[in-house]
């Protein structure tokens, strides 16, 4: 709530503060459940339907429960050429992780991203907010094993 109050100070109206508030709600609830959306609406005194409309428009919000860590792997042209699709297969083999899915232990979720602007160092991915590039069949697991 304090965090939301801080956010509210930066915007001319309550509606403007909605996107950052949704991040706060997402952090608190893990994903934007109905309950999380209702809380966000209450915090900003906006109609819940309005909040839901905005939240569902954007891809950066989680609309179902996700693993502790979110892998966002790019498979656009450059990454694809550099073997990103092989990495998708490997993630499935090693963790049983499907695109759009979550591992059974709730450790990782995988989302296939459109270009994340790292074509020069393809293939590339984001894990939560950390950027990792020049991935290959070996170092991807070295990196991922650091995320518990």
């Amino acid at each position: 709530m304090d965090e939301i109050k801080e956010i509210l100070k930066k915007y001319p109206d309550r509606r403007g503060a909605l996107l950052p508030t949704l991040y706060v709600a997402q952090k608190a609830y893990g994903w934007l459940s109905q309950e999380a959306l209702e809380e966000a609406a209450k915090a900003l005194n906006l109609p819940p339907a309005t909040v839901k409309g905005v939240a569902t428009f954007y891809a950066m919000y989680k609309h179902k429960p996700m693993g502790r860590h979110l892998i966002q792997l790019c498979t656009n042209v450059a990454c694809m050429i550099m073997g990103a699709e092989r990495l998708v297969d490997l993630l499935k083999e090693r963790y049983g992780l499907e695109p759009g899915g979550t591992t059974e232990d709730g450790r990782f979720s995988l989302v296939i991203m459109e270009c994340i602007g790292a074509c020069d160092r393809a293939p590339a991915m984001l894990v939560d907010t950390d950027f990792h590039a020049d991935l290959n069949e070996n170092n991807i697991f070295e990196i991922l094993e650091k995320y518990e």
């Binding site: 109609p47 339907a49 309005t50 839901k52 409309g53 569902t56 428009f57």
Partner: peptide, 9 residues
């Protein structure tokens, strides 16, 4: 009433 909205895109 602000009861409905466009969801998704």
């Amino acid at each position: 009433a602000y009861a409905i909205t466009v969801t998704g895109r």
